[in-house]
Simulated scan of single mutants.
Amino acid sequence: MSGHTHDDIDWADRLTQLRMADTLDASALTPVARRLLAGLPEHPTIVDVGCGAGGMSVLFARELARGGTLVLVDATPKLLAEAERAVAEAAAGSVEVVSLQGDLADPGLAAPAADLVWASGVVHHVGDQQAALRTLAGLVRPGGVLAIAEGGLELRCLPWELGVGRPGLEQRLHAARAAWFTRMRAGLPGSVPMLYGWTRALREAGLSDVESFGALIDHPMPGSDLLREYVVHRIGWLADWATEWLDPDDRAAVATLTDPRSPHFLGHRDDLYLFGAKAIHSGRSR
């Protein structure tokens, strides 16, 4: 089944990469889950909009020792099914798990009133980001919290020189992805610029007690087998999305680096790592 959504991205095709990212991010995001749950009422309702493979809701489920309800929302049926499976396994019956197919681009997005609404890397895929934040804020009960993960420091994973192609390949991949992102944003239905940062956007959505904090992703070299597999997926993904902004030499280098038959295959290296940061922005409903 196709996983294409309004942004014309086949998210179902990225399931393997999303699962790996969830595993690698878990140690950094567990304290975030704990922090966001602190102060919520007993048996809270949490809505995860754009839940992907369910990584963050798995962490919420593990922290909800006294029970609660986790509502998973995603526009891609394959991801929603995987998230439901993963969260149900983590909850082990202590948390009610509800799945809803829905898209944040729909202003009529229906979900139960929540004590915490979480949306990671989702708002920037909606043409009118401020309107999307108002939609999310409308799901939060008075006194509840809306938290989004947007921005931060782009993940780095490669040495500067790789023995193939020109030095600095990863930096050019990031620049190419930025060019792709600019075009993607401009092509979204109803796209409008948001000429201010996320904390102001949350205040514009009617929230108070707005704050931002970071979660450091740090997996030093030599890295695990999982990390190496993820890096191979990530570099291929970056190149696939931004190929038209890469010169032929860089495209050839990526092909060599991601080919298991190549002597330069990234999966054989012991000097890969992951280093970056997620930015979390939150506010409270009045």
Results as ranks from 00 to 15, higher is better:
Leu40Asp: 03
Glu154Gln: 11
Ala277Lys: 07
Gly283Pro: 07
Ala179Asn: 09
Thr76Ser: 12
Phe265Leu: 04
Asp259Val: 05
Ala205Asn: 07
Gly67Met: 12
Val98Lys: 13
Leu15Ser: 11
Val122Ser: 04
Ala65Phe: 06
Phe265Asn: 05
Ala137Leu: 10
Pro44Glu: 04
Pro248Phe: 03
Gly138Glu: 04
Asp7Gln: 03
Glu211Arg: 14
Leu116Val: 02
Ile217Arg: 01
Arg251Phe: 01
Leu153Cys: 09
Thr69Pro: 05
Ser282Gly: 11
His4Gln: 12
Leu70Gly: 00
Tyr196Asn: 07
Pro41Leu: 12
Ala75Val: 12
His174Thr: 03
Gly108His: 05
Val192Asn: 13
Met221Glu: 09
Ser94Val: 10
Arg66Ile: 15
Val232Asn: 00
Leu227Cys: 02
Val210Ala: 06
Ser94His: 15
Asp240Ile: 03
Arg261Met: 01
Ala90Arg: 13
Cys51Gly: 09
Asp106Pro: 10
Glu229Phe: 02
Leu274Trp: 05
His43Cys: 14
Asp48Gly: 02
Pro220Val: 11
Ala119Met: 14
Tyr196Val: 10
Met56Leu: 10
Ala75Arg: 01
Val117Arg: 01
Glu63Val: 07
Arg284Thr: 11
Leu100Asp: 04
Trp241Cys: 12
Ser262Ala: 08
Ala132Ile: 00
Ala92Pro: 13
Leu274Gln: 03
Asp225His: 12
Asp13Ala: 12
Trp245Ala: 09
His233Ser: 01
Pro263Ile: 09
Arg185Leu: 07
Asp13Gly: 14
Pro107Val: 05
Ala114Trp: 00
Leu266Phe: 00
Gly267Ser: 02
Ser120Met: 07
Gly54Ala: 10
Ser191Glu: 01
Ser57Met: 06
Gly50Leu: 11
Glu154Trp: 08
Val123Met: 08
Glu84Trp: 11
Asp259Leu: 02
Ala61Asn: 08
Ile280Ser: 01
Ser191Gln: 04
Gly187Pro: 03
Glu211Trp: 06
Asp225Tyr: 07
Leu139Glu: 02
Ser2Asp: 14
Gly127Leu: 02
Val32Ala: 02
Leu109Gln: 05
Gly108Ser: 07
Gly138Leu: 08
Ser120Pro: 04
Gly52Thr: 09
Leu70Glu: 08
Ala147Phe: 05
Leu133Tyr: 10
Gly206Leu: 08
Gly283Ser: 07
Asp106Gly: 10
Leu100Tyr: 04
Asp240Ala: 15
Phe181Asp: 14
Ala61Phe: 05
Asp22His: 13
Pro263Gly: 01
Val231Pro: 03
Leu15His: 06
Leu64Ala: 12
Ile280Phe: 04
Ser282Thr: 03
Arg203Asp: 10
Glu42Gln: 15
Ser208Ala: 05
Ala92Phe: 07
Ser94Gln: 15
Leu162Tyr: 01
Gln17Leu: 13
Phe213Ser: 08
Arg284Ala: 04
Trp180Asp: 02
Leu202Thr: 08
Ala119Cys: 07
Ser262Leu: 06
Val73Gly: 00
Pro44Ile: 05
Gly121Ala: 10
Asp249Tyr: 03
Val32Glu: 00
His268Gln: 06
Ala147Lys: 00
Ser282His: 02
Pro220Ile: 09
Arg34Val: 13
Arg19Leu: 13
Leu37Phe: 02
Val145Ile: 06
Gly206Lys: 13
Gln129Met: 11
Val58Tyr: 00
Asp25His: 13
His219Tyr: 13
Leu64Val: 06
His233Pro: 05
Ala33Phe: 03
Ala90Phe: 12
His268Ile: 09
Lys278Leu: 14
Leu158Glu: 09
Asp259Cys: 00
Arg251Trp: 00
Gly144Ile: 00
